[in-house]
Design a protein around this nucleic acid. Sequence first.
DNA 1: CATGCTTCTGTGAGCGTTCACAGTAGAGAA
DNA 2: TTCTCTACTGTGAACGCTCACAGAAGCATG
Lengths: 343, 343
Amino acid sequence: MTMGNPGGRRRPPTIHDVAREAGVSRGTVSRVLNGGHYVSPAAQEAVDAAIRKTGYVVNRHARSLITGRSDSVGFLLTEPQERFFEDPNFNVLLRGCTQALAAHDVPLLLMLAGTEDERRRITRYITAGHVDGVLLVSSHSGDPVAEELRAAGVPLVACGKPIGLGSKVSYVAADDRDGARDMVRHLLSLGRRRIGVVTGPLDTPGGVERLAGYREVLAEAGIEADERLVVPGDYSRASGEAGAERLLERAPDVDAVFVASDLMAQGVLTALQRAGKRVPDDIAVGGFDDSPAATAATPALTTIRQPWDRISNEMVRVLLAQIGGEDPAAVILPTELVRRDST
Amino acid sequence: MTMGNPGGRRRPPTIHDVAREAGVSRGTVSRVLNGGHYVSPAAQEAVDAAIRKTGYVVNRHARSLITGRSDSVGFLLTEPQERFFEDPNFNVLLRGCTQALAAHDVPLLLMLAGTEDERRRITRYITAGHVDGVLLVSSHSGDPVAEELRAAGVPLVACGKPIGLGSKVSYVAADDRDGARDMVRHLLSLGRRRIGVVTGPLDTPGGVERLAGYREVLAEAGIEADERLVVPGDYSRASGEAGAERLLERAPDVDAVFVASDLMAQGVLTALQRAGKRVPDDIAVGGFDDSPAATAATPALTTIRQPWDRISNEMVRVLLAQIGGEDPAAVILPTELVRRDST
DNA sequence: CATGCTTCTGTGAGCGTTCACAGTAGAGAA
DNA sequence: TTCTCTACTGTGAACGCTCACAGAAGCATG
């Protein structure tokens, strides 16, 4: 007769229970659990059956205590949380990483380092070995947390090429420069010649690269650079709106704009509409990101799709490899032009 | 001479090292770590100093192994991930929960139960005790994961009143009905009498309650219910657009619309603009959520703000209380009318 | 002086797992 | 036969912590 444990949760079965049930030793069960080398088919089968019967699930705490690994990784977001949390790409990335990790049975711990206090706590938590590695989202340069983690030898994979960190840190990024090139070439192919740009923040690699791609293509097309056509933005909708106004004021003959993010492009569209410009007839507008904002905009935005699903998969792959002892690696993934109604 | 551990991460200090450094026993250090009862001021101080000096951080795995607690909680999203991941409120909620938990030094594990496979793995993971409790986001009715967790006695707090689960599960929700009442009263106060509604999905409590609030206020104002003014939606932008078209078709004299979400309200605005209706002159539009979509819309949306920061705080508070042995609780928080340009 | 109570401290056991090691059995080679 | 090698299995010792318990010291009370 089973007594159970009325009023509380039952004590879960241990490796010991499984061993007894299967008629083998703890060691054999453990071997089955960890890859099954040096176990006889008979034992293998008996243990499998016993696990199913008892509903055994390994106690990760006990395992971690002895292996020194935690078999979990952190997803760390430092600094300007608002920007990221409002960015739909961030969602896709977070979801992709979570799922890719889940496929490897690795839990993801979400860590937000907003305040100085949180920063300190998280750094201690990580360097104390409570996670085996970190997926890092922190576009801005010279991140002290990232630097500290790198110095402590914590496996680290950044999303986007990190500025300021040594070359020893892994990262996965879309090919921003090439994406920008594609877009500007596309605008050129439509016959546009006075092509403006609203840049991203220039303390981020993405911002820098996208601007560089723009400049490259114009140069290779033999079009003289005109700095009046270059206005700065910070990826926010508001800065797109302001940028477009400034652009129209400085270069009224502009016939196309490459905007370094879809969110900014939404702002650009608003400003152009207010100024009485028709899109794409008077001015063609190209975005970057292929975020939901791109399809929601009117007209729907032509944009550059970043392969976020592949980015998250690669981040996880590289991180797990690094945890497994491999060297840091940089992965750059191709982008894709998505043509809609704004060009 | 310190040998260190060249080529690898150093073994972190243990409670033993701290004890030796402070000249006390492990037990005393442990007591200091866990609240400091029954420790002399002198010992307290010595241990504190030793912790600072050695940089000691407790090994949570070892602790969990013996206490049976994991001192972490899961943030579980079941089912229609797209809907939530595109919902800005979800971000705010996730962030709020993460930060509230961080304040208690409790890590958050992000769990996405999309596929059947993931569902099973997550359920096992949780019931095996790898988290102490679960923050649940799953508006739809009859969630099998939630039911299983509840049956297993896992502390659980849902966001929004769950349908289908017994009354034994805690939840935190905004007062949807009262918010809807406020909005409709506001529209009445502007002199509108032909007030339509685009509802949320009616298999969710939020959808049901918001509609109920609408009906209540009209009834108490002595306005006869007109079912032509009620059109269904599913919180998506597209359904707002379709809903507005349908509404105009069925009741051309409509002079206000209460839309059960801002995202849908954006769609409504688009459709109204296309139909040549001026907002708010011809038709006033009220949203719900106060999401970024509300300020981004033109005209900016009058809407009902849900106190997401308080909701996440309360969810965490209730969950931790429940983990600590308290009974399940329901918390309902007041909403707030935010007036902008669409009414 | 004995007794009790409170406050504080150290000690040993044990949480559930992995790992190193020792040991067994059977096959094949000398 | 005897030895070696391979394939497999069991055992004790950790991992770092908490918890129960025993005991010491100080102080008031009988």
